[in-house]
Design a protein around this nucleic acid. Sequence first.
DNA 1: CTCATATTTAACTAGTAGGTTATATAGCCA
DNA 2: TGGCTATATAACCTACTAGTTAAATATGAG
Lengths: 109, 109
Amino acid sequence: MDALSNTFAALADPTRRAILARLALGEANVGELAQPFAISGPAVTKHLKVLEQAGLISRSRVAQQRPAKLEPEALRAASEWLGEYRRFWDAKFDDLDAYLAKLQTGETE
Amino acid sequence: MDALSNTFAALADPTRRAILARLALGEANVGELAQPFAISGPAVTKHLKVLEQAGLISRSRVAQQRPAKLEPEALRAASEWLGEYRRFWDAKFDDLDAYLAKLQTGETE
DNA sequence: CTCATATTTAACTAGTAGGTTATATAGCCA
DNA sequence: TGGCTATATAACCTACTAGTTAAATATGAG
């Protein structure tokens, strides 16, 4: 799958977004990440694998722990994609709407 | 499912993102949207349902056609969520990294 | 070496996603 | 009305997702 699809798919889960929010405060190991949720350790491992696959986090090793760390690059890419649509919700939306209507009737030829 | 999860899930498919890109040029009906893809009409109908469910598009009626139109609000919401992480990929990333390291060792008490 | 802790892998389940083809519905036109 | 066009629904298939429990692996401490 393409990178952007991977990123959005990874973000389409509230547990994973909460994990990212936690990691925004700093690195955390699996136990710490599992604690706020009513899910098992293996479930957290799977979420982390999805996030790592999407490039949203990286893992390291500290004794028995395998802390996760936020990697912002994929978030930046997703944000840039959305940025292409920014004009649609910006102030000039109504003007744009009118412009598109004109476009479709071929007046701007 | 929550709105943000719906939005990201809808964006996690290249066909749907291409449909949105097409709609950024103006309204289009199902036939027009299906044409660039090697998928059946019903498949497009399903994608449009997902996009509509996520609030990313709206539908109308013109004779037999049911044109789809881009609705930017959900995109704005997704962009705002990502905006919370902007500082991680901004210029001061290295400084932030050092700050977080300090946070974790408790020096900022 | 053995034990305890942290995490991962394996095997399984229920539900969902994205596609198909065939059929049905909605609206225009003669 | 009957036929034509555009779209939607139904029924089905395959693959993936998010979760589970039980067993395996990795590391550090005695």
